[in-house]
Nucleic acid binder design. Sequence first.
DNA 1: ATGAAAGCGCTAACAA
DNA 2: TTGTTAGCGCTTTCAT
Lengths: 343, 343
Amino acid sequence: MAANRRPTLADVAREVGVSAKTVSRVLNEDGPVSAQTRKHVLAAVAKLGFQPNLMARNIRVGGPDTTIGLVIPDLANPFFGAVARAIEDTVRERGLTLLMGSSADDPDRERALTDKFLARRVSILFVVPSVGADHSHLKSHRTAGLPVIFLDRPGAGLATDSIVSSNRAGAHDGVAHLIAHGHRRIGFVGDLPLKLYTRRERLAGYRSALQEADIPYDRSIVINAHDQQGAEAATSRLLDLADPPTALFAGNNIVALGIVAELARSKRKHVAVVAFDDVSLAEALEPALTVVAQDPEEIGRTAATTALSRLDGDRSRARTITVPTRLIVRGSGEQPAPGTRGA
Amino acid sequence: MAANRRPTLADVAREVGVSAKTVSRVLNEDGPVSAQTRKHVLAAVAKLGFQPNLMARNIRVGGPDTTIGLVIPDLANPFFGAVARAIEDTVRERGLTLLMGSSADDPDRERALTDKFLARRVSILFVVPSVGADHSHLKSHRTAGLPVIFLDRPGAGLATDSIVSSNRAGAHDGVAHLIAHGHRRIGFVGDLPLKLYTRRERLAGYRSALQEADIPYDRSIVINAHDQQGAEAATSRLLDLADPPTALFAGNNIVALGIVAELARSKRKHVAVVAFDDVSLAEALEPALTVVAQDPEEIGRTAATTALSRLDGDRSRARTITVPTRLIVRGSGEQPAPGTRGA
DNA sequence: ATGAAAGCGCTAACAA
DNA sequence: TTGTTAGCGCTTTCAT
């Protein structure tokens, strides 16, 4: 029951009566080893329950560790979960293991995580950059060959690869869809903070769609929320305005949940809605929720393949890869605007 | 631009003109250091951009690394995402970092992940055990002091702490709710594989509720699905039976999505539904979805605190902690059974 | 208050 | 085919 020291290479070597290096050779299929000793070594490994210390190995071999670091805002957000899964699936065949952490969109927490990951000599660093975070401290690592990839948003202070959704075009298309169905008073419920890249881009898309239709931009129906509860409250406030919007555009998946929940509770199903980012059960709602779907799998996959090609020596210029969004029309965008024939 | 060697403790020492040990002392707030040298060392650290190699440190210090290993079936499943976040939040203050991987419920992948984590000398191992996986290989690690915690399901071949939901009682309550509203023909759509612990427990709860109401168990309306599409198809098949169920019990969150989607598509809103595990937008559906909610945050938190107390020397017997579920009545369970006054 | 030497577990580079 | 030596970057131990 004692907390016995775990067996080392030397223990195995002693057990078999060979040198440590021979055991090492067997385990790593390094140099030549006779079938005999090989068998004995493996037997001893099994007997002692030896497991090589990967950290010790790594220290000696030098170079990056076979881990990748992944910093996302929230492990429980399905969008980032899907991105993470796609990354893992892509790097797994290279034997890389995921080191993960949630930043909660806090620059300090993000920095603490990246520092830890760097101290562990990760092979790749994937970061969803928090608003206000500066990444210039990663510059030396990048020039030293560490692939650094920004996900979902570009990072500040460092020129490196970024994988983002087509936020502006996607939002534009979603809002244009509402306009096409007769809406001229379209509320925008965005996420927070205001400086968040995705929020700004999506708001820009919203504005450009309005502009194309000669609809003036009205700040009083642009509102923000940080979580589902906030979005519910925001929705309620918007609809209680003297001149309420007849349609709403949701700036992200969490906001969409809030809007839909609030409309359902207050029985205001007549309000048209389009959401940025798909949510589960969207098609089961009444009306079914029309969304500008992101492609988290593609984002993760692209991020991973980009990083791996960097790891393989690709020194070309930093790229920003935009992963297309897709308007999925399900009905909620077609709730007729008052005084319209429903289109 | 060259891939320069990263600075080491020795580099910093040389820069300052002190010994490596002195630098080490400063960085770890170990022995006494004069304010002078301390300042110089920190300056040099900043100047060189030195970051201590955590692996080298760990190798020398011995003992477990400041990482925890977490094996879950699917990073993108919001239930496991929520569990993971709660674990991370709890262990973060101890300075522990998350090493994560998806097993896809495949015993081989699970084993590969745990082996990797063990080779990295994780401080704690959290595993959602796959069906068919044997965990006796973890025995020696556990007796050597490594906390091993099973999540969501008990593991096989190893007596250690498990944190599970009150699956049986929860399912019983959900089904009893349907029975209370007049249903006697209640379909069970469970997940796969059939041997999955949660499926068996929830099915047992279903059966006990039926039994209490003297409703015979009818295998023909117990059906299984692995993913949302499968659940949709299964639902369709159930409802196309000559004597279809008037109510459905969903065995997990994914199955619930399938059932709800299929009922919405086929316009069979009259079918009553209760789902095990909450899903987002449940309250926005029509009717709103009644669920037996799990508490993933509490599961994660409990798992983490249990593990930490083990780490702190708690050698008491292995416990199985059951986290209560909660029936959240929202309406879908009250769709009247035909020939009933709606209760 | 600081340093020198040894060593953590492993492998690179050489020898035999 | 196998072993020996040295050393990865750090900390421990013991000196000074």
